[in-house]
């Protein structure tokens, strides 16, 4: 019974994440088309703005070439992200060093970053879903992505979380809690228990000797943990 409910919760999380990634994929395809036809990414503005609704608080595309093109919009408003690209400025942040940029660049795959304090754009506690953009030769050319605030993600999951009777938490592969049903598992806290941390790295459904069960969310770096 517990396993079944936990798996249902993991599937719900996977659905929400896949819906977000579907939006990211649309942006990625559009960006690749713009690059292929040598057109400017700023033409994507309207299309990006239309995607910043529902769970998605911000979305856009960022290139890897110099000068770097950043077409990122945040709702409601909507507001275009204006980053200071001058390395000598106090406000300068090198986006090419942020995990939501480096992981898709290094692995060639999509990635969920967070939960983390996003001080680059929205200054919120967020999850960022990113996918690599490739040019005609298949070389990494940048990222397409979408932000979801952890508070909104938790609100969307709340009904499903409440169907699990025992203590439960949605965590990332590092054991960082995104949403939980007990005061011990508030967003941002870290699971320090070594056997659980090792099990998280394996990304397979299992029940540990202590009775803690793990239900990974598809191929995403997210897992539902349930305590007996």
């Amino acid at each position: 019974m517990a396993i079944h409910v936990t798996t249902a919760l993991a599937e719900h999380v996977t659905d929400l994440a896949e819906q977000t990634f579907a939006v990211v994929t649309e942006l990625r395809i559009q960006a690749e088309e713009q690059i292929r036809t040598e057109r400017d990414l700023s033409e994507m503005g309207l299309s990006i703005v239309q995607k910043t609704t529902g769970l998605i608080s911000g979305a856009g595309v960022i290139t890897d070439r110099d000068p770097q093109q950043i077409e990122w919009w945040m709702g409601p408003g909507p507001t275009r992200l204006e980053l200071d690209l001058d390395p000598a400025s106090d406000d300068y942040v090198d986006v090419r060093r942020q995990p939501w940029f480096t992981v898709p660049r290094e692995t060639g795959s999509r990635h969920v970053t967070g939960p983390y304090v996003d001080y680059v754009c929205a200054e919120q506690y967020a999850l960022t879903f990113t996918e690599p953009i490739r040019d005609r030769d298949g070389t990494f050319a940048g990222i397409a992505g979408a932000d979801v605030f952890v508070a909104d993600f938790e609100r969307a999951l709340r009904p499903a979380l409440r169907t699990v009777r025992s203590p439960t938490a949605l965590v990332n592969t590092q054991g960082r809690v995104i949403a939980g049903t007990t005061a011990h598992h508030l967003a941002g806290s870290l699971i320090r228990d070594a056997p659980i941390r090792e099990a998280l790295a394996r990304q397979t459904p299992m029940t540990l000797p202590g009775g803690v069960s793990l239900a990974p969310c598809g191929t995403l770096p997210l897992t539902v943990l349930t305590w007996p």
Binding site: D90, P115, Y116, V117, D118, Y119, E123, Q124, Y125, R176, A187, G188, S189
Partner: peptide
């Protein structure tokens, strides 16, 4: 450090004080 504390509010305050 404020980001590692997982606090968006403390991070925003850090930026404000730095300025």
């Amino acid at each position: 450090v404020a980001a590692v504390a997982q606090s968006a509010r403390l991070a925003r305050e850090e930026v404000r004080f730095a300025t």
